[in-house]
């Protein structure tokens, strides 16, 4: 059994390479834990990609090659489609909604359920608010403009939505995105939040910025910990420390990214990039397309359904107070999907 006097050094990596600013979330977490842990508890951090390729991080933590790893759930739907809803939901929870859902609305336990199957404990430890939207060289004033566009966009569900509106999802290696956009191989891409987009130099090669980012109003990152390490190598106090550090880091990373987006946005505005916005009707059409595909996923994957139901149930329950508090509340109330169908798929009584 674990002993507080034992010296322990945990190895951790990330899905983000040092070139992507999102790695700051991981780095700050390591800094926090190392400051709190004293001489006996240390995390040794390796930049993403240096120990295992990003897409292999999950397996490496599951097997215990790495003790820990900072992830984004959107990378793991190949393991279980349920991870899609955990990482981010198209037109679903905002970052504030996610925090409420995770820490008070049962989200934390559902996240554990999804990862535990693979021998992993997952502590949500960061996130960011709305992504930028679609950047490219053709204006998107309405959904009609999407027709025939070649767009690089991550995510399975997002690809299906694009297809519904006549656009095509193009798959490209990350390293090819910039040039493909610059040379017109693709018409547009979504990448990340303004600050990350600006560090990639997308303001130099695009003319239009289509908002809002219906494909990802928020993204959640978790630090994955090998279950065996969690159960046998850590003392209860150390586990509590990691949980607390993860929670503190969540707030830090959200504020860090959101605040940096001020400067990130300015870089795009300085280049006179034209911002277009989809109207309410168009957004509602996308919402319905999302629900269609979400329901399909629910029917084939009970865990997906269970998590989606919990999220929508939270939105439903919270709607009343949110609308009373409006305009001083945060986020938005959405038209809900067919709750009974999702409930049935989730097997919730």
């Amino acid at each position: 059994p674990a002993n507080a006097a034992d010296k322990i050094e945990l190895k951790m990596s990330s899905v983000w390479s040092s070139g992507i600013q999102l790695i700051e979330c991981d780095r700050n977490f390591v800094k926090l834990v190392n400051a709190m842990g004293g001489d006996n508890f240390k995390i040794k951090f390796f930049d993403g990609g240096t120990m295992v390729p990003s897409f292999e991080l999950f397996d490496a933590v599951a097997r215990g090659t790495l003790d820990m790893g900072g992830d984004w759930g959107g990378y793991w739907p190949g393991k279980d489609e349920a991870f899609n809803v955990i990482g981010s939901q198209p037109m679903g929870l905002s970052i504030n909604d996610y925090m409420l859902w995770i820490y008070q609305g049962g989200g934390f336990d559902l996240i554990q359920e999804a990862y535990a199957k693979h021998g992993i404990v997952a502590l949500p430890f960061g996130g960011h608010g709305s992504e930028s939207g679609i950047r490219g060289n053709k204006p998107i004033n309405s959904l009609k403009d999407l027709k025939g566009m070649k767009i690089r966009m991550g995510g399975k569900l997002q690809g299906k939505i694009l297809k519904d509106f006549g656009a095509v999802q193009v798959n490209l290696a990350g390293s090819e995105v910039y040039q493909a956009l610059e040379k017109g191989v693709i018409d547009a891409c979504e990448y990340n939040i303004p600050t990350v987009d600006s560090l990639m130099g997308l303001q130099e090669i695009t003319k239009y910025w289509a908002s809002p980012a219906w494909h990802a109003p928020a993204a959640i990152f978790s630090v994955l910990i090998n279950k065996n390490v969690w159960d046998t190598k850590l003392t209860p106090a150390q586990r509590e420390m990691l949980k607390t550090a993860a929670m503190a880091n969540f707030l830090w990373s959200f504020t860090f990214f959101e605040y940096n987006d001020i400067a990130g946005t300015k870089k795009f505005l300085d280049k006179k990039i034209k911002i277009t916005k989809l109207g309410d009707k168009d957004l509602e059409a996308i919402q319905q397309s999302i629900y269609k595909h979400t329901l399909e996923a629910c029917k084939t994957n009970p865990l997906f359904a269970k998590i989606a139901y919990s999220q929508y149930k939270f939105l439903q329950d919270f709607a009343q107070w949110r609308s009373i508090a409006s305009p001083f509340s945060h986020g938005r109330n959405v038209t809900l999907p067919d709750m009974n169908a999702i409930k049935a798929a989730a097997g919730v009584k």
Binding site: M51, V52, P53, F55, E56, D59, A60, R63, G64, T65
Partner: peptide, 13 residues
Amino acid sequence: PSIYSLFANRIFG
């Protein structure tokens, strides 16, 4: 020696 399990991950990369 647990580092060996990185081999398959890295080769697959």
